[in-house]
Simulated assay, not measured.
Amino acid sequence: MRLLDKVIIVTGSTTGIGKAIAKRCVEEGAKVVLHGLEADLGQEVLEEIGKENAVFHCEDITSETCPENLVNLAISAFGKLDAVVNNAALVIASDIHNTDRAFFQKVLDINAVSPFLLIQEALPELTKNRGNVLNIGSVNAWSGEPNLLAYSVSKGAIMTLTGNLGDSLMREYGVRVNQINPGWVLTERETERKKLHGLSETWYEGLPAIFAPSGRILKPEEIAAAAIYWLSDECGPVSGQVVTLEQHPMIGRNLPKDSSTIK
């Protein structure tokens, strides 16, 4: 077991990538603090992985008390804290025309400021155990889609945060900070989003090669499998790194000979 006796906070772990990471952490021997806004979904995950292996905290990640509550819950339930997975995020469409100050600030608060504040709160405990942080970003951090403006900027911000803290926290406290940038992942919410856009129930089947060279998009469990390396001691002293998990390169990608049908 690669995470035996580790205690890990996973934010946004009631669905999707966060849920998959929490489940895989428990399979690898860890105890987990689950977090999310949906109490019913949180209880479902808790029942699935076992109440002896996890506790659940339901609170808005932007709440002033949330970072302290999550860290205190880890200590009270399991006696320590070894790692934080910053996964909670708001994925929402916006562009140059409909992004106002309040909206932009909300997205930044959830996706970039809140992860920072949780790292700040957890640092004393992580320092005791030479622990680590894994931030879950997005390939959109590199520039993003035109209709994901605020979201993309927020993921760019957390990528810079990873590089900055990955250096400074390792030097001063021995705490690693790394990041995964997932590509297109078939989560429950992504499935529902595409259906709201008018696509069919089976939209993810038979995707064009330009979007999915393998014929399918990534599964949350595949992101979770990669997360274990960064959370485990196998990672050694590696810190401040960002790894992209996608099935095609972001730079130098081969376009089809006839790209006129790409939308």
Rank of each mutant, 00 (worst) to 15 (best):
R24W: 01
W142R: 13
F78A: 05
I262H: 01
N87E: 06
V26G: 01
I119K: 01
S214H: 07
G12S: 11
A150P: 09
Q105E: 15
E201Q: 11
A122Q: 06
K263V: 15
E59S: 12
A22Y: 02
S13L: 11
L231E: 10
Q241N: 14
D95C: 07
I21R: 06
R216T: 13
G79Y: 02
L108G: 00
I21S: 09
T261C: 11
G137R: 02
L46W: 13
C58I: 12
T99G: 03
A150H: 10
L161D: 01
S63D: 15
D167S: 01
G236I: 09
V175P: 00
K106W: 04
N98L: 08
Q179E: 15
V71Y: 04
I251K: 12
E145Y: 13
Y204I: 12
R253K: 15
G206P: 08
G36C: 06
L199Q: 08
V242H: 09
G252F: 06
S260I: 11
Q179S: 12
A30W: 00
V45Y: 11
N135E: 07
S13N: 06
K128W: 08
R216C: 09
H57G: 10
E38V: 08
E68Y: 04
K31W: 04
F104M: 08
I110E: 03
E234S: 12
L165F: 01
T11E: 12
V243T: 15
E44V: 09
E222C: 05
A141P: 00
E222T: 05
M170L: 10
T99V: 09
E68M: 04
V7W: 04
K195H: 07
N147I: 15
G156W: 01
L46Y: 13
I92M: 10
L245N: 02
T65E: 15
Q241I: 15
E38M: 07
K263A: 14
I21L: 08
A212E: 03
M250C: 14
I8Y: 05
K257M: 15
P67H: 05
N164C: 11
C58H: 11
T14N: 10
L165V: 01
T99I: 10
D167E: 09
N72Q: 11
G18E: 13
V139S: 12
K51S: 10
L73K: 10
E27N: 11
E27W: 03
I75V: 12
V85N: 05
L134S: 03
S259G: 14
L207V: 08
D258I: 13
G240K: 00
H35R: 08
V91P: 07
D82Q: 02
E64Y: 07
